[in-house]
Design a protein around this nucleic acid. Structure first.
Length: 157
DNA sequence: GCCAACGTTGGC
DNA sequence: GCCAACGTTGGC
């Protein structure tokens, strides 16, 4: 089966694409939404993902990363000192997972405003009003359109 | 099982 | 800081 495509949101003040590039890999912890978790459980090694900066000025796309390790329990759920602690999750039946990602390439930044002008993205959940999902699937055309737009913007700028 | 209240996310 | 959207919680 062909690789799937995804999008991860991160607040760059907390963890940016450059942080990922510097570290080399990162366990994507802290996801506490069932839909997002289920998407992570569906990810396979080699799947590629857009790294999106939320809560930024402006928000937008910063890079491409890839899954290098499939879902496993996110240990921060068991740590009472972690802000991601979940008292209702048992070690024998962990509620929350993470995947591990690595950088692929930094992209010329594409703002959310610019993404709205990409025809392939009209139906993308990322652009839906009130969208709060931090991990979401992308279709191959959506993923490719984002990368292509960035490459075009990079040559222009 | 319904639904109002509440908390969080995220753009602006 | 504000507000809209939406997921979760809790009373009934």
């Amino acid at each position: 089966m062909a690789a799937a495509y995804w999008l991860f949101k991160s607040e760059p003040d907390v963890f940016s694409y450059d942080d990922l590039a510097r570290k080399g890999s990162e366990g994507w912890d802290g996801v506490r939404n069932y839909m997002a978790r289920n998407y992570m459980r569906a990810m396979k090694v080699g799947d590629q993902a857009i790294f999106y900066h939320s809560q930024a000025t402006p928000p937008g796309v910063a890079g491409v990363c890839k899954v290098i390790k499939t879902a496993e329990p996110d240990m921060s759920q068991f740590d009472p000192k972690s802000k991601y602690f979940d008292a209702g999750s048992k070690r024998t039946d962990p509620r929350w997972d993470l995947v591990t990602v690595a950088p692929v390439k930094k992209l010329a930044f594409v703002s959310l405003e610019e993404l709205r002008s990409v025809p392939e993205l009209i139906e993308c959940r990322l652009l839906a009003k009130g969208n709060r999902l931090s991990v979401m699937p992308l279709t191959a055309p959506e993923f490719k359109a984002i990368v292509a737009f960035s490459q075009k913007a990079g040559r222009r700028g």
